[in-house]
């Protein structure tokens, strides 16, 4: 297993206005999986994603990623864990408009204190993988939405993380572009040394999942962990 989450609970706010976003959620992810987490708005998907990736501290429960109980780490060690292990694709990408596409992609390597030139060279290779080599010196806002998404993916994979986390990767793309990107990710990015977890509302891309977890009201719907291998 690359990731095991055990009895994760999280609530927001104080009683009487307390919302229980997650109630004792447990699940596991294996290497090579492309796992989807789906469910209605407010069911706790983003909260769960944040907790398993070391961004949001749970009220209760453990998250073990590659033998590390991540919520036992101090904040700097946790930042180091995210940097070394996880690749993020945020819903609205969060690319730096004042850096070139190439520099944007190189950021995780630069944060890892790789030398500048080496980071850029590695980023260039990764841009080639996502098919944007010729756009490397443009600022991201000059690219189309689909291209920006691919830049965000390149940034997420440039440092070869074990676990890739996508929140609503197709939400701001048209259906065709969204499908293409997810197909691309499955074809070129997924492999036996890593896992990809995708939160989505978008049923048009369900066909690419290796497994789908359905959430409702802070819980995983039982029996919804079935394999959707295609």
């Amino acid at each position: 297993m690359i990731l095991t989450a055990t009895k994760i609970s999280k609530s927001f706010g104080e009683a009487p206005n307390q919302t229980y976003a997650l109630r004792e959620v447990s699940f596991a992810v294996d290497f090579g999986e492309m796992l989807y987490i789906v469910g209605p708005s407010g069911s706790g998907k983003t909260t769960l994603l944040s907790i398993i990736s070391g961004i949001l501290r749970p009220d209760d429960g453990d998250v073990v990623v590659k033998d590390t109980d991540i919520w036992k780490l101090g904040s700097d060690a946790l930042a180091g864990f995210r940097l070394q292990t996880i690749g993020f694709v945020f819903q609205d990408y969060h690319l730096f408009p004042r850096l070139t596409t190439l520099e944007n992609v190189a950021i995780p390597l630069i944060l890892r204190r790789e030398p500048w030139e080496k980071s850029l060279a590695e980023a260039r290779k990764t841009l080639q993988i996502v098919g944007l080599a010729e756009k490397e010196s443009l600022p991201p806002y000059k690219l189309s939405g689909g291209e920006q998404q691919r830049v965000a993916i390149a940034r997420a994979i440039v440092a070869q993380p074990d676990l890739l986390i996508f929140d609503e990767p197709t939400a701001s793309l048209d259906g065709e572009t969204g499908r293409k990107i997810v197909a691309f990710v499955k074809e070129h990015i997924l492999n036996e040394r890593r896992a990809i977890i995708i939160v989505t509302h978008d049923s048009r891309i369900y066909e690419y999942a290796t497994r789908i977890i359905r959430m409702e009201d802070g819980r995983i719907v039982p029996g919804a962990g079935a394999d959707h291998e295609k």
């Binding site: 961004i55 700097d76 180091g80 864990f81 993020f88 995780p108 944060l111």
Partner: peptide
């Protein structure tokens, strides 16, 4: 700010 936030999420330490 949101970019600094993204850096933080990716794994930049506060000190950095």
């Amino acid at each position: 700010l949101e970019h600094f936030g993204a850096l933080k999420a990716i794994g930049a330490k506060s000190g950095e």
